[in-house]
Amino acid sequence: MNCEIEQVGGALVVKLKGEIDQHCAEELRGDIDRQLDIKHSASLIIDLGGVDFMDSSGLGLIMGRYRKMQARGGKLLLARPTPAVDKLLELSGINRLVGRERTK
């Protein structure tokens, strides 16, 4: 799993590549939360375009970041999920809660 994080305007953009499972979810969570706390970003964009595999550990990661952004009055957006990842997002109901970033 590879994770690139950069601040673009008021948004923290997290580009994920590889496979998201329980093995890497905790480290990812730490990396993202640290940057959110440092940058005080108003929104968080998670770019899933490079994710070839994700299981429910990834759902936990996304749900956790959604709650975190809600608690601080910010918002979470997801970008470019692959069909397999989108199937999981749809099943979990996350697609009804979290907006989609379409410009990436």
Partner: peptide
């Protein structure tokens, strides 16, 4: 508190 989604069995079933 460990941010488990609770969706594991639901995913398997689906």
């Amino acid at each position: 508190d460990e941010e488990r989604s609770g969706m594991g069995f639901t995913v398997m079933q689906s």
